[in-house]
Design a protein around this nucleic acid. Structure first.
Lengths: 234, 234
DNA sequence: TCCGGTCTGTGGACGCTGTCTACGACCCGA
DNA sequence: TCGGGTCGTAGACAGCGTCCACAGACCGGA
């Protein structure tokens, strides 16, 4: 009643293609025990490797099994279907984004001026977000571009080492801006959406939108322009 | 060398599923001539119908052929492969977006105050953009979420009735702002990116990002917040 | 120590996909 | 009238996600 024709397609046969990456033994070396021991984890790791290169659509169940060195349907002992595995990979990619944002903030120079530091932190999160999208387009597309439909968004998932997800990291920056008096507290509620939309939009347009292929010079200008608009218009 | 494993997958078999939409005779009624007469156009139209419901991944070549009432590979006489058909659909979806933006601008009340009108026009384009994404998520995802990789971006494609694409419509608004003195001309260069990123980002997050399912009240606030940030931070 | 149950991995099916190819119907100009 | 080019047909093929019957491996109780 919902999906009339199956909204899943693509794939199917293709002409020869070069031989698959390491058609035999992969993941680790060929295991000698019948039971793998840590297959679930290995499947997600293999999915991450595939997603890094080709985005979510590269997470082909049979290819993931192949990369883990197991039979083509072994993953069904750990995930009910392909989407479930993809969600796990997607969450992992989101965590990686959070981790890069945290790293970038941690690298900020210390400042006596707390207000200035708060602004720099906000800018750093935005820069890290866009850098992640450009450096790891496959993961970025996986983190956000998953069919999801009914993806369960469990709390605490997609978080970095601090336990905060990208959205919460942004919220923390805004809270700090309020705490330092840089942002009037009456403008705080719902203020995440502006910076998030702007940065996410730029990243999306750059990664697989009409702006892909932008040269480094033009790109730097675009990032500066967007972040300037955000900080000016907050 | 580029795509190691074919970055095209998904699909494959699925359990029964309900019978396809009108397995026999579809598109128009079953034709009686051997030659279709206008197959290329009909294929694109069928692709648009499928994309409207299920996004780009719903544009299944065999299903498109089926909907047009021809054999499963008839489309190969008009498109070299599935992607080419998808690009045509994608361009059509982009045109539809441009058309809705134009419509929204045309509906603006006339103003003696040209500057005010220019601001309202900018706001209207942004609102139309987001409304389109929410009203036609399938088309929106098709317009922007296509593999593209090497999609040829021909000039003049994806345009509305005025012959301008969404980006050019936005540029026009900014030009008018400069002409009326609302925006200093030295800030004009590259100014499209800010509004575009913010609006596109919000639309993306709402359509298939973490913000999907936002209620109408919260949504209205988000749209207002983002557009406010754009106009304030320009 | 053996024995049965439960995980977990195997391998073969199925129907779906995109694509290729040989073929056949039609249209049109010579 | 005929012959070539255009356009649709039909059957193949490999790869996909998924299901199923089966088998190896582990574990607790007798």
């Amino acid at each position: 009643m919902d999906a009339v024709y199956d909204p899943r397609r693509e794939g199917g046969g293709r002409p020869p293609l070069e031989p698959q990456v390491t058609p035999t033994l992969s993941g680790k070396e060929r295991r000698d025990t019948y039971h793998h021991g840590n297959l679930r984890e290995e499947l997600i790791a293999a999915g991450m490797r595939l997603a890094q290169v080709g985005g979510p659509e590269a997470v082909v169940l049979r290819e993931v099994n192949r990369a883990a060195g197991v039979s083509h349907s072994a993953a069904y002992r750990h995930f009910p279907d392909r989407d479930s595995l993809l969600w796990a990979v997607c969450e992992r990619a989101m965590s990686e984004l959070a981790r890069r944002m945290e790293k970038r903030m941690a690298e900020l120079p210390p400042r006596r001026d707390r207000k200035r530091h708060a602004w720099e932190a906000l800018e750093a999160t935005g820069q890290a977000y866009i850098e992640f999208a450009l450096a790891e387009p496959g993961w970025f597309r996986t983190a956000f571009g998953v069919p999801l439909e009914l993806r369960p968004i469990a709390p605490g998932e997609g978080s970095g080492d601090s336990g905060l997800d990208p959205f919460q990291l942004l919220a923390g920056c805004l809270d700090e801006l309020v705490a330092t008096g840089a942002l009037p507290s009456e403008r705080r509620r719902g203020a995440e959406i502006g910076p998030w939309a702007a940065v996410h939009g730029l990243a999306t347009l750059l990664v697989d939108g009409p702006l892909r292929g932008t040269g480094p010079k033009e790109l730097a200008l675009q990032v500066r322009t967007v972040l300037g608009m955000v900080m000016h218009g907050l």
